[in-house]
Simulated assay, not measured.
Amino acid sequence: MRTEGTVTRLDRVFARLDREPHRPAHIDVPRMSRHRLVLFSAILAFYLAIVWAVVTTSWLVRLDWQVMFFRPYQQWPQIHAFLDYYVVLGQRGPTAVMIASWLGWRAWRQHTLRPLLVLATSLLLLNVTVGAAKYGMGRLGPHYATVIGSNEMWRGGDIFPSGHTANAVMTWGILAYLASTPRARRWLSALSAVTALGVGLTTVYLGTHWLSDVLLGWAAGLLNLLALPWFEPLIARTENWLFALRDRLRDRYGRGVPMPAPELTGGAPGLLKPRAPAPEEAPATREAVGASRSLRPPAFHHAAAPHTTRGERAPVTPAGSRRPPHSDRVPHSTTTAARP
């Protein structure tokens, strides 16, 4: 038999599923620390180096063509069906729905809108930065390449950087960014890194992206993820504004004025007792009660009658027959003729 003090792992799981009574006082909000700023600068330099290597048609472009002619989807056709489904983990629509469902539950549980606002900010930031780079450089993909050995830049394409890869880094990295404990942050960071790495290599396997597209997609996703602490003050102001708007709408169109609850004065648990009047107001209350009682009309009561038992009561019988009168019938008292 389990004692009251023993807490099992299942108890911890159910405790995590319950809604907290109030918003946690100390929610870990990442800051733009020096370490994060140095990492952001290094990845930005890597991003610019990849763009420069592709624009100048360097060795990286030659490597792109070698991988394309290798055709990995023909070398390992047995995993083609699985990777067709695995690459969905980098599509913006399905992943946004999955992550939003999880973060919506967390927002409800912790009485805060921050998880959903962080997700919305990350998706908006990713669409603006990656979308602008895609349509600004206009690179064609491997299936639409025209000149062997060229970088295929500014020809109306939209695959540089890889949107699947950047979205996988950003969307799954949000889970690590919003983790509540350092241990969970480490595990989720490793999981999101492996997922984003697999999505990027899958696009190269399927032939939909150059290898340099995937490298730039990883850098773009990390840059957006590391830049989120700069938007935390705006997210906090937006959350406060939304809660204030909710309170105003609730006061205007929602519930009425709540009735005051009766006070507990002790006694048995859960037993409500009326509040005793103050000493100074007790005489006035008694006078008012007495005056109200004197204004009432006197009640009239019947005189008391002697009680008789059931056997002494006289039965009440109707005066006359209960049958309706009939003109064709003959009374029993008259004599009738003898029957033949």
Rank of each mutant, 00 (worst) to 15 (best):
T3C: 02
E4S: 12
F14G: 13
E20H: 10
E20I: 05
R23H: 01
H26N: 15
H26A: 15
P30F: 01
M32K: 06
R36G: 07
V38S: 11
S41N: 03
L44A: 11
T57V: 14
L60P: 01
V61E: 07
R62N: 11
R62E: 13
D64T: 03
P72K: 08
Y73W: 10
Q74H: 14
Q74R: 14
Q78V: 12
Y85C: 09
Y86M: 13
V87A: 07
G90P: 00
G90R: 01
V97W: 11
M98N: 00
I99D: 02
W105E: 02
A107Y: 06
W108G: 08
T112R: 04
R114K: 11
L117M: 13
L124Y: 00
L125E: 00
V130W: 01
A132C: 11
M137R: 05
M137E: 06
P142Y: 02
S150M: 01
W154E: 11
G157V: 11
G157P: 09
G157K: 09
P161H: 06
P161W: 05
S162N: 07
W172F: 14
G173T: 07
G173E: 05
I174K: 02
Y177K: 04
Y177N: 04
P182V: 10
R185F: 09
T203Q: 14
V204A: 10
G217A: 12
L222I: 12
L228H: 05
R237F: 13
F243V: 14
A244K: 14
R250V: 06
R255T: 10
L264K: 09
G267F: 00
G270I: 00
L271W: 04
A276V: 14
A284Q: 02
T285R: 15
A288V: 08
V289F: 14
A291G: 03
R293N: 03
F300A: 09
H302V: 02
A303N: 07
A304S: 06
E312N: 07
P315S: 14
S321E: 04
P324K: 05
P325H: 09
P331H: 10
P331N: 08
T334G: 00
T334Q: 04
